[in-house]
Amino acid sequence: MPARDQRGAAPDPTDLRVTPPAEGSGPVRGDDGPHGGRGTPFTFRHDGRTVTAYPGETIGAALLAAGVRALRPSGFDARPRGLFCGIGACFDCLVTVDGDGPVRACLAAAAPDTEVEVHDVPRQR
């Protein structure tokens, strides 16, 4: 089922976050609301806007949940690229974090108050 509000309201069909099943260590903070069980949310900055993330989320996952699919322009032809392999093998999802990197958004954990920027490095043939 999609993220279900603990109060029984209809889930938002556009919300990509799935509520984790209540398994293992019991209730954690942030257990109420549509993303119950994910812990206490925090924010980081991406390309001039504020993005919400939950503990353990990767930068790529948090951006996807925020509706950001195009993560960077390709070097030669500036074609938009996003999460592709999702496991660190393809290097399409590169971003910079606080000016350092590039890092793979599918692997790097989101961190509070960081500045995530588009890795835009034009190349010429």
């Binding site: 999609p2 989320e57 990767t58 996952a61 392999c85």
Partner: peptide, 17 residues
């Protein structure tokens, strides 16, 4: 994306692609 990538997002992050 790859099917494995979609699965990783769902299993690891609880996020639908």
């Amino acid at each position: 994306c790859t099917a494995g990538g979609a699965q990783a997002l769902l299993k690891g992050q609880g996020i639908r692609v």
